[in-house]
Simulated assay, not measured.
Amino acid sequence: MGKIRLGIVGLGKIARDQHLGAIEATDGIELTAVASRNAKLEGVHCFHDIDEMLASGVELDAISLCTPPQGRFAQAKAAIEAGKHVMLEKPPGATLSEVFALEKLAKSKGLSLFATWHSRGAAGVEPARALLAKRKLKSASVAWKEDVRHWHPGQAWIWEPGGLGVFDPGINALSIVTRIMPETFHLTHSDLTIPSNRAAPIAANLTFETASGLPITAEFDWRQTGPQTWDIRVETEEGPVVLTHGGSRLIVDGEAQIVEEDREYRNLYRDFVTLVSKGESDTDFSPLVHVADAFMLGRRIETEAFED
């Protein structure tokens, strides 16, 4: 198989910060076209939206959707119906029903669908998973706190229904926890702190329980300034296993094991090339399921208005 000819839809901050460089660094794939309402990119075909891209006659094998989750279902559906493999930026959609519908549609067309979780590509995640499978666990806790003004300046969509609010970064933590924990777990309590002028939470406190009854807690907050916190700590009978810096650093029993630069998106595109070459999909929606549960069980706590 030759190089995958890729079209990107949405040329915003995440595409420019992560996707473009990762594509360029990945064998077996090349950027052929972009679709964006407000931006163009030199050296590739440029279109206003995905419909114009798909109707253009430009030969494409796959589409990577880097748009906000609201409205992404229609874009993904159009791409799949046009015979294109699809890669979904996280979160994969605005609702559970739409992502499961996309999974079914892609399968019926024999196309690859990749629901990406970039934080799972962090260097410490797979080693932590392998280690925890051998240990006796006691509990786990997550602290995921960052400054929304720094990471999402002026992005009003993220505060609207379907934009997830603080769960936009929080789902990254959940994507790691669902990967490394040997047991499944379910939500038992959810407190959602929501600004009086917003539809989505700015903070959340969650409690989970594993199949055997072990506790997991998660604290998400978008109001932290200064150093940012992206930590997951698992207590085991043999000692603590800690992932910091979003999973790129692994500390076992107090000793640093892995410290590595950010390669998450390069890993995603490498995996996408492999999925397409094998005719397979990766549609693990479990992090989104936990977020949906948090909203279903969520107790609303109103806080002061948030202004960007």
Rank of each mutant, 00 (worst) to 15 (best):
L206V: 00
N197W: 14
R233E: 06
V259D: 14
S190A: 14
L164Q: 06
I176G: 00
G165R: 13
F220E: 03
E255Q: 15
W222A: 15
R198M: 12
E280K: 14
E237P: 11
H186C: 10
R179Y: 03
V241T: 03
L275D: 04
G170Y: 13
E219V: 05
H150E: 11
E264M: 15
V273G: 10
L192C: 06
A256K: 13
S277H: 07
M181R: 04
A199C: 06
L214N: 01
G165K: 13
A200K: 05
T184L: 04
D191G: 01
V166G: 04
T283C: 00
A173Y: 10
M181H: 08
S248K: 14
T225Q: 09
P201C: 02
R266H: 13
H290C: 05
L187I: 09
W159N: 06
L192I: 03
N267S: 00
Q224W: 06
D191H: 08
P240R: 03
D282S: 04
L268E: 12
V289Y: 08
L288F: 09
N267G: 07
E235K: 11
I202D: 03
A199M: 11
G279S: 07
A200L: 12
I232W: 04
W157A: 14
F285L: 10
E261R: 11
I232Q: 04
A204D: 05
G247P: 09
T207W: 12
N267I: 06
G226H: 13
L206Q: 02
G247C: 12
G163P: 09
D191R: 13
I202N: 04
L268C: 11
D231V: 11
T188N: 02
T178L: 08
S190H: 09
P287K: 01
